[in-house]
Nucleic acid binder design. Structure first.
Length: 356
DNA sequence: AAGCCGTGGGC
DNA sequence: TGCCCAAGGCT
């Protein structure tokens, strides 16, 4: 296949040693990660940070990782914690199924008496897919697992000049990555590949002149580095419309909890008119009751944009006709602790600025 | 297997 | 400003 043929074409350049030498001489992209030569890191901290880092930037994860490890120093602490408190602590990080899987995984690991130490067994845990299982196996347990994230895909596609578009090129990229993964220091190698992708082999304007793998890179030699990896075009994002309701009484506001699955699953929320389930143009007509509009909240999700009309009412007359769903009045002075997803935090901010 | 699932930063 | 992107997983 293309990847192995290219590998044989440049046998003189030892990729892993060159990359590890570069890694040893540079600061880590993850400030909480131990320097090279340190004893093996705590699997709990490796697992927690890798789950937080799924599709999430290092800058966004940092404060959350510090907060979580300070509040729940061991996986036993996390497993024993109230799930609702963990969900609230995760608020703002996105992809909330990760928080639910985090709790399930922590409890399973405690039940097992500790983390599995192989990629195959780690892969069985909730929330650990191909990437995370390989990363934890390599970084925490030294297994020579093949770790492939978006950084590695980019670095390897360029190194081997793999021009087929993603996601179709994934099998070839994984095979090529396997050919350069060293039997020892696989964890450092994986982190070095990701650091290289984050700081040198970047999506736009790669710093090829600074790259320790320059002599081995087929794409750089061909002058096509920045064009790789190719990607299949994505579909346009639709816009959905809906309403959220602000029901306030005696310094408290009415919150519900969203059902476990689906959009913002399991998170505390403002009551809404079902915008999540609809892709049509509902939420534009008049609404019955003592409501007045408090403005519009716009929020972009991964696969649609949302325009949410904020509905306000004077609570006194609403006390006896609350929505049928379960909920709670939450003190406004503790709004920051409610753990609202960002779209509802935006709506709450607007409501507080609009009310009389 | 292609669609669903958040958010904030960079250009 | 609008678009692209990120240490992906699940169904």
């Amino acid at each position: 296949m293309q990847a192995s043929a290219e590998t044989k074409a440049s046998p003189s350049f030892a990729i892993a040693p060159a990359l590890l030498a570069w890694y040893d001489a540079h600061a880590r992209s993850l400030p909480w990660r131990a320097p090279p030569g340190a004893p093996p890191p705590d699997p709990y901290r490796v697992w927690l940070s890798e789950v937080m880092l799924q599709q999430t930037t290092v800058a966004a994860v940092g404060p959350y990782f510090e907060r979580f490890t300070r509040r729940w120093p061991t996986i036993a602490d996390l497993a024993a914690a109230d799930e609702a408190e963990i969900m609230a602590a995760w608020a703002g990080l996105g992809y909330y199924s990760r928080a639910r899987n985090l709790v399930a995984c922590a409890r399973e690991v405690v039940r097992l008496g500790g983390f599995p130490s192989t990629e195959a067994d780690l892969r069985k845990l909730p929330g650990l897919g191909a990437y995370t299982a390989a990363a934890v196996a390599a970084i925490a347990f030294g297994e020579a697992a093949v770790v492939v994230d978006a950084n590695v895909e980019r670095v390897v596609a360029r190194l081997f000049a793999i021009t087929d578009p993603l996601p179709g090129a994934r099998p070839a990229i994984r095979e090529a990555t396997a050919t350069i993964t060293p039997p020892v220091r696989a964890g450092d190698f994986a982190q070095a590949m990701m650091d290289l992708g984050a700081t040198v082999c970047t999506v736009r304007s790669p710093r090829c002149l600074l790259c320790p793998l320059r002599g081995a890179c087929r794409a750089e030699a061909a002058g096509i580095a920045e064009a790789l990896p190719a990607k299949t075009p994505k579909k346009p994002k639709p816009t959905r419309k809906g309403r959220v309701f602000w029901i306030e009484r005696e310094g408290a506001v009415w919150f519900v909890r969203r059902e476990a699955k689906g959009m913002l699953g399991g998170m505390r929320a403002l009551p809404d008119d079902g915008w999540h389930a609809r892709a049509d143009g509902h939420g534009e007509g008049p609404v019955a009751g003592p409501w007045r509009s408090g403005g519009v909240v716009r929020h972009g999700f991964t696969h649609f944009d949302l325009e949410l009309q904020l509905m306000l009412c004077d609570a006194a007359e609403m006390v006896h006709q609350l929505p049928p769903e379960e909920g709670e009045f939450w003190p406004l002075v503790r709004l920051d602790e409610a753990g609202l997803p960002t779209v509802f935090a935006k709506a709450a901010r607007l409501a507080l600025s609009e009310r009389s």
